[in-house]
C-alpha cells in the first residue's frame, strides 16, 4: 500500500430525511466525483444514509486549540445563558 498524494475530503452523511448532514469522517480521492463514490462505499454500506456531501478538507477553516479559552471558556460561568437557569412558573403549559 503506497501513500496517496490525492487530496483529502471531509464526508457528511444525512441519515434520514429531515435530519441535517453529520460529519462522518474523511477520505482521499482524486476528485469530487470519486470522493462521493468512495464515501458511499466507506460510510453508507449499511444503510446509514440518504444523502452525502463531500468537501475538500482545505476548504475547512478550523478554530485553533490555542484560542480555546477566549473562544469557549467565557461561556462556562454564565449559567443564566441556559434555559435551565430559570424556574418555570406554575401553570405555564407547552414548555
Amino acid at each position: 500500500m503506497t501513500s496517496s498524494d490525492w487530496p483529502l475530503w471531509e464526508v457528511f452523511v444525512r441519515s434520514r430525511r429531515g435530519l441535517s448532514h453529520t460529519h462522518a469522517g474523511s477520505l482521499h480521492a482524486p476528485d469530487a466525483q470519486m470522493a462521493l463514490r468512495n464515501a458511499r462505499d466507506l460510510y453508507t454500506r449499511r444503510n446509514e444514509g440518504v444523502s452525502i456531501w463531500v468537501v475538500p478538507s482545505v476548504a475547512v477553516t478550523a478554530s485553533s486549540p490555542d484560542e480555546r479559552d477566549p473562544f469557549f471558556e467565557s461561556a462556562a460561568d454564565k449559567p443564566y445563558r441556559h434555559p435551565t437557569f430559570y424556574e418555570i412558573p406554575e401553570g405555564v403549559q407547552h414548555l
Binding site: M1, T2, S4, W6, L27, H28, A29, R37, N38, D41, L42, R45
Partner: peptide
C-alpha cells in the same frame, strides 16, 4: 485485498 493501490479503492473493490 491488501494489494489495491489505495485504501479507498480496496474497499470499493471489496464491496
Amino acid at each position: 485485498a491488501g494489494h489495491a493501490p489505495v485504501l479507498e479503492e480496496e474497499v470499493a473493490l471489496a464491496n
